[in-house]
Amino acid sequence: MNDVKEKIRNFDDLLTRLDEIEELDEETLLARARDLAPELLRLGEITLHFWIIARGGVPTKAKKEGFSILALHRQGAKGEPSFNACRESCRETVYQYNVIMQGDDDGQILRSLRLLVMVVRHLALFISGKLQVAGLGDFCCASKPIRQKDKDMSEMVRQA
């Protein structure tokens, strides 16, 4: 699985790979389901690596509930509650991965593979968006003001 990271240097590479997987026909998807699910999980982890590295951190090698992606999410959300906007996407990634790896119903496996692609894509879109616009998720998911640094304005209101 290390080669996945070598091929994925940025979000464009990652989104392109997701498109390639999505375009595979049903027969190929089913035949390769148990290779594709770990790859998709790995792509989810890589999106979190991008976030952590961009903020000057070193991605943890720890696991949470048996999964790196959950430990990486926790690391990424430290001091950044708005990052919890993608907490459910990380958990959903694990859930769909488990369904594929444990399942024996072809229909369900196929469905979960498609859902997994969507969830990982959303994770990548959210994190790439948040790297451009730091406030994404602040107002809603962290219930924090978007412009918390406008102290002068805040003080003005307080004194009114």
């Binding site: 906007a85 459910e88 969507m118 959303h122 879109l125 968006g129 616009v133 994404l136 998720g137």
Partner: peptide, 22 residues
């Protein structure tokens, strides 16, 4: 699986491209 996923929300006007992609 995206029932609580981010739509860009408060950034819908200020950063439309991110919101549109989401």
């Amino acid at each position: 699986p995206l029932k609580t996923a981010c739509c860009g929300g408060a950034h819908t006007l200020s950063d439309s491209d991110t919101s549109t992609r989401l």
